[in-house]
Design a protein around this nucleic acid. Structure first.
Lengths: 234, 234
DNA sequence: AAGAACCTAAAGTCTACACATATTGAGCGC
DNA sequence: GCGCTCAATATGTGTAGACTTTAGGTTCTT
């Protein structure tokens, strides 16, 4: 059969299966027919069914185990995907004009908390970069970043007055591991000044630690302006 | 060729390609060979290469466009996946003992802000449930939830003293759409009491709105105890 | 020079089949 | 009745080949 006449694509199957879950026809924990039977039902091959079910499982709607079969996830939507765009893209997507400003960039000995956090040897040196990201000249994000010099020697020559440290790093060093956290922190006097909020105000914060083959590369703390929400639709 | 002797699986290809990206051999924006050539290089079929590249693209490492080819993403890791377990699972995963406590459950007319937020008609009624989740009897999360009665009529008969509203809803109503936000809010007097923090302290907050075929079902605000971090590794 | 129409390369998808692997549940021995 | 072994089964993955769709380039036209 040619596909144009009667496309039974994996997307159609996904839609149909999702529909049955959402309508309640297939409740949580329901065991659904095996791939072969579904292939007959949708009059396509098992491969196509497999792809549909695999993706639905990846998205958290189904749980699959060999021999045990496929069943509707009882705790659906356990995984949420957040898109974390570059600040510039995020600002521009909201229709704002993006502006970057370097606050300071200094080489220094890693403070104790940082050395402990990144498992640095005492006395290891880092470049500490602080900068601001503005949307239409209102504060959008304050970025506080430390870059381990031993892992990225070129950083001592980098000029962060023109390019943000994030973009510079992305272009310069590869990485193998990332840890990303979201938390709520409170604005100290400095932060309050940069973000134009009252001292003590809650500030949505993202922390990102990056490694290259086990070597810590950078820790970034990103403080967002008041009212910021990280939102996603599922 | 039998697979057992020389498995060139899509996972191997993913690893190899990832390695080349991470090592810097394929820098951001590099155009990589087309699927057919890669299939030759890895001595497997294009299907297998396709799956590897497709998944890497889904994970944000590659960008693919028909005819234009596949290139290394210039802004890598644009997508992060967070696992959002049920509170009970999260507490138990940390080795704590989970305890649930109902604070209040009342049917009422939707307050104006809620009606606006969920696009309710004025005067529509909701059940307002407030409850606490404890880990080893220390506050873990305060949950403030509104359930639209017109969308879930059974809610008026539900007994939330034994089962949490989240688990009850998951078992009872399907849903079609979810919006999830993370933000930082400040503890008011009530919240401070429940979470055992000082008034005005920053509180990491998750908000979840659920719809069923365009009908708003529930809005939940989940306030986490001091120091909470939502973390993921990539 | 600007724009429209066409060609074609590359990814996207489907079919059909085969072998791999995990795990359940039945049968067996003790 | 309990535990072990083993076969049946459902999903997982790979091969081979074909057709489809998109969009970058080129060429042709105005």
């Amino acid at each position: 059969m040619t596909q144009s006449t009667e496309t039974t694509s994996y997307k159609d199957i996904k839609q149909t299966v999702l529909g049955r879950i959402r309508s309640g026809e297939w409740r949580p924990d329901t065991l659904l027919p095996n791939e072969e039977d579904l292939a007959v039902e949708f009059s396509c091959t098992r491969t196509t069914v497999n792809r549909a079910l695999r993706e639905l499982a990846e998205e958290g709607f189904l749980e699959r185990r060999r021999k045990a079969g496929t069943r509707v996830s009882s705790a659906p939507q356990r995984q949420a995907r957040f898109t974390i765009p570059l600040v510039r893209d995020e600002v521009e997507a909201m229709g704002g004009t993006y502006r970057y400003a370097l606050v300071s960039a200094l080489a220094e000995t890693a403070p104790e908390w940082l050395a402990a956090r990144l498992a640095l040897t005492p006395g290891q040196r880092v470049v500490h970069v602080r900068c601001m990201h503005y949307s239409d000249n209102t504060p959008f994000q304050f970025e506080d970043r430390w870059i381990v010099i031993d892992s990225v020697p070129q950083v001592e020559q980098a000029d962060f007055s023109a390019i943000g440290p994030n973009e510079w790093l992305v272009q310069t060093v590869p990485f193998t591991n990332v840890e990303l956290s979201f938390l709520a922190s409170r604005a100290d006097a400095t932060l309050a000044g940069f973000l134009d909020v009252t001292e003590g105000e809650p500030v949505f914060t993202a922390e990102r630690i990056t490694w290259l083959q086990g070597q810590p590369v950078t820790l970034a703390k990103m403080y967002f302006a008041a009212g910021y929400r990280m939102t996603t639709r599922l």
